[in-house]
Amino acid sequence: MPPIPPSDNATAPPPASRIDTAALMSIRSLELRARAVVEGYRAGLHRSPWHGFSVEFTEYRQYTPGDDLRHLDWRVYGRSDRYYIRKFEDETNLRCHLIVDQSHSMDFGTVGWTKAAYAATLAATLARFLHLQGDAVGLLSFDDQLRDYLPARQRVGHLRQIIIALDKPPGGRSTDLIKPLQRTAEIIRRRALLVLVSDFLTPLDELEKNLISLTATGHEAVLFQVLDPAEISFGFSKASVFEDAETGRALYIDPAVAREGYLQKFHAHQDALAVICNKLGAAFHPVSTERPLEFALTDFFQDRLRRGRLVRRGAR
């Protein structure tokens, strides 16, 4: 099981986050939240030790005479009056589909915001980032069934629609990953990057089958597992009746007694999920909602870069 990245490192000084997560999540507008993360992330990009990692392009760099003007980013030039060259690993257009879980299980949080809010911000941030790069971004949100589907497009105003769809409150009675994945396999015929944002707190058997069918058709899958710290440690202290956020089922639980069993099962689940992802070549990013979003982005892009190198090494 890949370790769930901590919000800070106890041994080494943590990389300073430019954005306080609590302050960020207190912004009501999802669009503003996404913009804050992306701009913060991009402002720090050039100081980053990992130059050039991205989904498809390697980096923005300033234009120097002799560069191919075809790679000049005219949008950036239009906004900043500066010439930037976009460097691409792959010249092909990237289509990214964000598949976001909006079930009631995501409507849970003990750190001041819910997993749904965190997942929506994460998805919006990715959408905005990719949209700014000129990539086509689509959205598929679901609970126990498909809620919204926005095909991957790159036109003006599409990002706004994605954000409006992401901003909807959670609903549904359960998390059903199978139907959205089956629907995705039906809708998305062309090769695409599928970013699944969910807590994946469902039985994994069917998930594996559908992920296999997706990856088999050439889609690249990235799984963001958004988890609340309480779900990771089960650090409740008081015995009480625990109510399932989705089904409303209630169980009397004494955390002191149940913690061990819970953690055992939870880790087994996480391990199984990691094994599935590893087997299918899908990237698996468990994220605690306490963790700054830009770090989650960094992890994501770092992993993309590592995979690209692996791919390249494998290609050689």
Partner: peptide, 26 residues
């Protein structure tokens, strides 16, 4: 005396939990 609590705690999923009725031993 551990009172049978009437407090409710909302939790994301009871997937990993099993019923734990208050036991006399506790």
């Amino acid at each position: 005396i551990r009172r049978t609590t009437r407090e409710k705690t909302r939790f994301s999923s009871l997937l990993f939990l099993k019923p734990d009725p208050p036991r006399p031993s506790s």
